[in-house]
Design a protein around this nucleic acid. Structure first.
Lengths: 242, 242
DNA sequence: GGAATGTATGCTGTAGGCAGTCGACGACAA
DNA sequence: TTGTCGTCGACTGCCTACAGCATACATTCC
């Protein structure tokens, strides 16, 4: 829902090999090539990416810090498989954080920021009416990021980003479910922020993200088959020989 | 303010060498042997801890994920030096999270939990009256942890723990500042949780943590000399020779 | 036939080592 | 004296290699 932006105290310049490895692995997780619960064998990743195990290991350590993979000492790394319950809790926290962001944004309202918000909102609505789901998702992400940045609380912004990213998957179906109504809520939110109505802004954002949460839950309830986080397998079937 | 409890998706069994290295380094940071802004030279740590650079590197990666150290590619790891502003923002977020925890705790109230809370509260007050600051700090930590766990939202609990830990330092002076009044607030909070008054519980918690935040800020304002996060030095003064 | 044990194998955890890179210091010129 | 360039040292980033461990399969015993 939010664009990638580094957490508070992470890596600054993306120059190293482990950084590019991290990006690659993350991409594979996001697009689903690496499935939830899947065991990430260091050698395989290293071979596929054309590097040694070392940068792969370090990338996995960093990814664990962001909640993308779980490390099991002696067993290696596994793609984190969020349960419905965890996703629900993540979204509940996101609601809390973003509502506060909206409140603070209304408090620190700034004309330039407002016009930027309106621009994004227009684009989002246009994309929505044109049935361009991808563009709508991007605009949605930008809008929420912009609001949370307007809060002026960097910690809040980082945490929101982190939480939002951890929900991942199924954003597009969720976005498809709602559509135009969502952008009307965004417009109302911007109005409230502009006029400095803290409580109103917070409340709109709260209900807005709560809607998203409901859509998400319904979406997963309709597709329970997407749930099971792949059983853990360590060894490949032995080669048939002799 | 909260006891250490692993983040959502981290290491499960603390058996490996890098884990013990992590614990050691973390301890050194917490007790202040490694100062904010200090450059953590891998070889030095490795030598001091009697291991090779590898587990040290990995421990540092993991610590960066928890916000304890900053990684600068090509430069290594530095002990994270939170500014007053960042600490303030962290505490603001903590207020938000803990207020919500209290609300949810009131919603899911349970008799056994309540009596556990009262026990902790009694101990805390006793410690406070006996001027046993350490015991009071521990009890305070336990109480907040218990409440946040009562919320039933694991993500919320983990995030709160993470945020609270990142403030670190100066907890004791803060605890000293307030004392008895703090425990009266705790008692009122427990009453509200027991009777299921969500709004009241949330409000008490909000004001309570806000008090702590104020105390913290005053404490740092009075000791500005503790602030400067040590300038970055990479090399030791060259040995005088020839 | 089933269960316990032995064995093999793949994987992780750790060590050691080399090359690249960044920053500091010193020399030289203006 | 001050600014710029070259050199040097130290540290990181990465690779390779080895040891330990956990799991799965095969064998043996009951």
């Amino acid at each position: 829902m939010l664009a990638n932006q580094g957490s508070t105290a992470k890596i600054v310049r993306p120059t190293t090999l482990r950084e590019s490895v991290l990006e690659r692995i993350l991409e594979l997780i996001i697009i689903g090539s690496l499935k939830p619960g899947q065991h990430l064998v260091e050698n395989e990743l290293a071979d596929n990416l054309g590097v040694s195990r070392q940068p792969v290991r370090e990338a996995l350590q960093l990814l664990s810090g962001e909640g993308w993979v779980d490390l099991r000492p002696g067993h290696g790394a596994y793609v984190h498989a969020p349960t419905v319950e965890e996703a629900d809790q993540l979204l509940a926290v996101r609601t809390l954080l973003e509502a506060e962001s909206a409140r603070l944004a209304a408090r620190n309202t700034d004309k330039r920021d407002i016009s930027a918000l309106r621009d994004i909102c227009m684009r989002g609505l246009a994309a929505c009416l044109a049935d361009d789901v991808d563009a709508a998702v991007v605009a949605n992400s930008e809008l929420h990021t912009a609001v949370v940045n307007m809060s002026g609380n960097r910690v809040l912004a980082d945490l929101t980003s982190q939480v939002a990213r951890r929900v991942r998957w199924y954003h597009t179906p969720v976005a498809r479910h709602r559509g135009k109504a969502s952008w009307e809520e965004h417009a109302a939110l911007i109005d409230a922020i502009e006029s400095g109505e803290e409580d109103v802004a917070a409340d709109i954002m709260r209900r807005h993200t709560e809607h998203t949460r409901q859509s998400y839950l319904e979406s997963r309830a309709q597709h329970p088959e997407e749930e099971p986080p792949a059983p853990i397998r360590r060894r490949r079937p032995r080669a048939v020989s002799s």
